[in-house]
Design a protein around this nucleic acid. Sequence first.
DNA 1: TCTGGGGTCCTAGGACCC
DNA 2: TCTGGGGTCCTAGGACCC
Length: 427
Amino acid sequence: MKSMFALVDCNNFYVSCERVFNPKLSDRPVIVLSNNDGCAVARSEEAKAIGIKMGAPAFKIRHLINAHQVAVFSSNYALYGDMSRRVMQTLSRFTDQIEIYSIDEAFLDLSDFPQNTLADRGQQIAATVEQRTGIPVAIGIAPTKTLAKIASRLAKKSTIETRNRSRRVLKLATTPDIKEALKAVSINDIWGIGHQYAARLNKYGITSALALSRMDEQWIQKIMGINGVRVVQELRGIPCYLLENQPTPRKGVTVSQTFRTELDCFEDLKTAIAAYTSRGAEKLRAQGSAANMMLVFAASNRFRAHYTFHTATAHLPVPTNDTPELIHYANQCLREIHKPGILYKKAGIIFKDLVCESPIQTGLFDTRNRKRSRHLMQAVDTINSEMGRGTIKYAAAGLLSNQKWQPLSRQRSPAYTTNWNHLPMAS
DNA sequence: TCTGGGGTCCTAGGACCC
DNA sequence: TCTGGGGTCCTAGGACCC
């Protein structure tokens, strides 16, 4: 049986989410900014056309925004997460062989569907998603995940160029079709090849996906390691990556943030770290994990001279997801790395070496009442999930909102789908 | 003390992804 | 003035052991 994967990719996902609830935005250039209103992380086609690049800092494109009346949004993850769930649910109606790859992409394994029906099936999937969620998608269908990625990219491109929505599905199954596609795709646009490898390969005169697919595997192994060999094989139609439809537990949990302003006060930094630790501990409990190790880092502004970045780690005596205990170790780490006089711009925490939270393993000299603290954490989590995040928090994490370290979010759209108070009004 | 191969485990850094 | 956040995997090198 020949393998066949589909990649379903939402178009300009965050922008499309904003447009679903605000039809006036259609045909207008729209962008969504990263945290802290820093960079453009999603752009409508109109915004791309006027030259706004992915990741462009907001302050550098201010002139474009003003000149073209670009609609600008802060990111609204409550909305995007919820819309993503709806898209994925819709896809699951077609097959249970689905891998949710990211917030806006999913792979489907279509190997069991009859070959000659795949293109039609793709059209049906795209139409259904758009009808039920309002989100437009492009779909690539091919024998490997890497080729399916390429197919979806080409489908998107040709939909835009021809303004023909039936082009949103592209199937690459025959050798000539695949060869034709690889000729048209630059090496920079291949899944697994970033700008470092692209530059290295360019030096050897390899610029197209077709050229890469013809390279000697041993040579590629030397240049790019085992992952490079896999890319080449996938381009040749030999699957190296299978569908992963069992969600694998996270191996680490990170919470980090760039501050609104630079911090020189230890107490501010300590409050921020406590807030991140608390958020991270919530994430651990939500996935049923406990950490063996935590890492705290703090850094100055990386765009200024004398950049500093320091980390400290704590090996926890017993795996834990208990907020006050973790805050205690976070403080210890922070004291190790904090240097007076440095203007801090970013900090964060990482939990590593995660294990399943139960049963609780107790150390010989462990004096904490872990049963009691687990009940307390459960109560806090329940209240926060019913009443809204942050209803109960640790005083160490700061009770005031709008502190110096909290991020900016000037133009967030309402949480249309997850908060009754933000329901759109018909008028 | 020197000789040598081979194995494991850990960590840091580099590359990639969205 | 203003430049995101959260992941994964691989590899090289060091420490240690037999």
